[in-house]
Design a protein around this nucleic acid. Structure first.
Lengths: 64, 64
DNA sequence: GAATTATGTCAAGTATATTTTACATTTTGC
DNA sequence: GCAAAATGTAAAATATACTTGACATAATTC
């Protein structure tokens, strides 16, 4: 399912997918796919994304 | 680096690596490797581990 | 102290995360 | 309206997460 919290957190920092991708050392497509929700990133990438967006894992990736 | 919080949380539930692996639908070696710290599991597996151990991502996998 | 159970680890194979290249569509600023 | 920037998406290649099978050692239990 879509990760709207990620999309919102990125928007809050005014970062494009590409800018976030650069901060995390991954490709733009990877960020796009994660937001789109049709895949399963590694925890290290999730942590890199969280740090770039000043969020924690629970805030962006935890679901009850 | 070693994930001692995971090891401790598993011990607190009195689960062997193999029992936790079964709960998460992965192999025992995968759990062992994650505790040992020499790899980078996917977020879905981290979430499965957290749920099996009644913890959240931040509690087991977040590092400042 | 022998037998189970739990853990560490390794090598080879399979599944899948991620990259690269590329093109189409949408959004935004002028 | 146009140009540029941002996003969606897809196919093929590469890197790596994860499995399977196997053996060794440490810890538990009888």
């Amino acid at each position: 399912m879509k990760n709207l919290r990620l999309k919102a957190a990125r928007a809050a920092k005014d970062l494009s997918q590409e800018a976030l991708a650069d901060l995390c050392d991954v490709s733009r497509q990877t960020i796009s796919a994660i937001e789109k929700g049709d895949y399963n990133p590694t925890i290290n990438l999730c942590i890199a994304i969280c740090k770039a967006l000043d969020k924690t894992l629970d805030e962006l990736f935890w679901e009850e």
